[in-house]
Design a binder for these strands. Structure first.
Lengths: 337, 337
DNA sequence: AATCCTGATGGAATCGTTTCCATGGGAAGT
DNA sequence: ACTTCCCATGGAAACGATTCCATCAGGATT
């Protein structure tokens, strides 16, 4: 019930009330030139009628719907939630709406979402890419401005695509340094058999781990998981059971860290006595955990904020931004026994 | 540089290639009636040209931009992240994009966002309302279909507004039962001085707490906080210091639970020996905490999913949906000493 | 055979904005 | 005084879809 929905106030109404043409109203409202008197009359009419320009009309005319699209693997993951928060907080200052999609780290879903983006004529995208990134080629060709966050795309054999994808700006945490610092810390404590739990999509970290460990690398100690909690737990439990000689583990994100703690408890492996644990990404609960977790902190919110800044500054093509990580030592690591 | 951006394929191109009028193409593509032969020719041309209808054109014509808007207080909060995930997963099945905004539990920001929604001609909104909800009246008048999630609006003195707001469907957790169960559990353990930590916006839970405690209520034991982590910690620490006679605390959400654990540690109040703690909302880390936290679990994801379902079914006005909560007993409560 | 009806079809209007272009007037320069 | 220039201004086109409405063909009915 209630009153019937009211007709929308259009620019035409404002023009009529102010006694000017619609073109003039448009110009005044978008900061074009106009005489002081006209400007005042138009502004007056606009406020009196409580006129709000329709984004629909503008978007169609300009052939692009404003706003920023954000594609993350999993909004439930604290890291991506914080990243999202950063994007939102920057977007707010530009008064741009943010449309969000979750990819589940699945290239197919990602391609789907990119298609939807094109349909919506979104022209600004921030994405955490999952696959080899080939689905981005048509989007780039269609004129979208894309910024990658947290990861770039997998190095890909196809040389043609690669160039265009390498031009996509990216905002990253300094994985390499973060992994190196963590590994050095662990080797400093005497650990030699260090395991690494990673998800697909964390290949950069996995590579950095291989580089940091160097000769001591035992491929069996690198355990990949898929994007779900169950898969994370399975990978963690599997690694600990397969290799009881392991004395330290680094996990590629907080979900895997959680899984490692649970699996260790289940298998009666005590942290840090039997196993030292370093987790990528500092989350609020790391401090509440028993024992408090030593972590490689990443500026998640900042990554999102910077990515949003980049995607808004269409003009100059900025290069990749790398933000520092920080090793925060708490209580989950001890000397090798 | 890459090739120049290509011209968009429009319905006109398809019509030309198929040798029919644009009206026919539109009809075929949106499931209207057409002869089998025409249909095939159109579909053929559409695939051959890789035609994707522009949402912009459609939206303008239909005077509404599709998609769902979602307003939450804080995307960083695990509860709202899971709720968002539920919304996204339902929206995906309708192929509807989701635009998200964070209100910070601040009515002013919320009003701002609602204004932006109107500007975008969004006509489907899911919101966790923060204030007295008066900013929703113009939106409802403009024809938006709104669904509240997790909370309804504060009961408001103004009787005119109230009716229209009470018609807004809502998907809620059963706060009342959840609070009652938790309080009964604690009183069953012998606790008499039970504190309650809540945020603004959790007035329903606060009320439920007052009802559940009944005579034993001591207003000083109810501590409100604002939406930030700092404020949560301040409220928790303040409560524990002000009233050392307190033996149990119920927190209105997981951020306050986290704050309570930290504050207790800081003040050397041991859980569960000196203080029993029940937290609203089950989060993954509740199990990892020392001690593991007893919680009132809420179906966060389900709340989001159901809300999205409701907002998509324009037709029948459904009533409020209340979903059950569940007390999960872990290790953070003990008998009164 | 004339009429009616049904279903397919295409032209044109429409949504609300921005922007191109033509027009007009007033100020400045010769 | 005449030309030139510039700026304010408004009409109209454009964006790409949907949808109303008129038209037309062909079959069924009287």
């Amino acid at each position: 019930m209630g009153s019937p929905v009211q007709r929308r106030i259009t620019i035409k109404d404002v023009a009529e009330m102010a006694g000017v043409g619609v073109a003039t109203v448009s110009r005044v409202l978008s900061g074009g030139s106009a005489s002081a008197e006209t400007r005042e009359r138009v502004l007056d009419a606009a406020t009196k009628l409580d006129y709000r320009p329709s984004a629909l009309g503008r978007n169609l005319r300009q052939q692009r719907s404003g706003g920023i699209a954000l594609l993350v693997p999993d909004i439930t993951d604290s890291f991506y939630a914080r990243l999202t928060d950063g994007v939102l907080s920057c977007a707010r200052s530009y008064r741009e709406p943010v449309t969000i999609g979750v990819t589940g780290d699945d290239p197919e879903q990602e391609a789907d979402l990119v298609g939807a983006l094109l349909e919506q004529s979104m022209d600004r995208v921030i994405a955490v890419p999952s696959g080899d990134g080939e689905m981005w080629a048509p989007a780039l060709r269609a004129g979208l401005s894309v910024v990658f966050a947290d990861r770039r795309v997998w190095r890909d054999p196809a040389p043609g695509q690669r160039r265009v994808l390498d031009e996509v700006p990216a905002v990253l945490a300094d994985d390499r340094a973060g992994v190196r610092t963590a590994v050095e810390y662990l080797t400093g404590l005497g650990h030699r058999k260090i395991g690494f739990l990673a998800r697909h999509g964390q290949s950069y970290r996995m590579e950095a781990f291989r580089a940091a460990v160097g000769d001591a690398l035992d491929e069996e100690l690198v355990a990949p998981a898929r994007a779900s909690r169950d898969s994370a737990y399975a990978a963690a439990a599997g690694l600990l059971q397969r290799r009881p000689d392991i004395t330290a583990v680094l996990t590629g994100d907080n979900m895997l860290g959680e899984a490692a703690v649970l699996a260790a408890r289940e298998l009666d492996v005590r942290i840090p006595r039997d196993l030292s644990l370093v987790m990528f990404d500092d989350v609020p609960w790391a401090e509440l955990c028993a024992p408090p977790l030593t972590v490689v902190a990443q500026p998640a919110q900042d990554i999102g904020y910077r990515a949003a800044e980049l995607v808004m500054r269409q003009g100059r093509r900025p290069r990749t931004v790398t933000l520092p990580t920080q090793l925060i030592i708490r209580g989950s690591c001890g000397p090798r026994r």
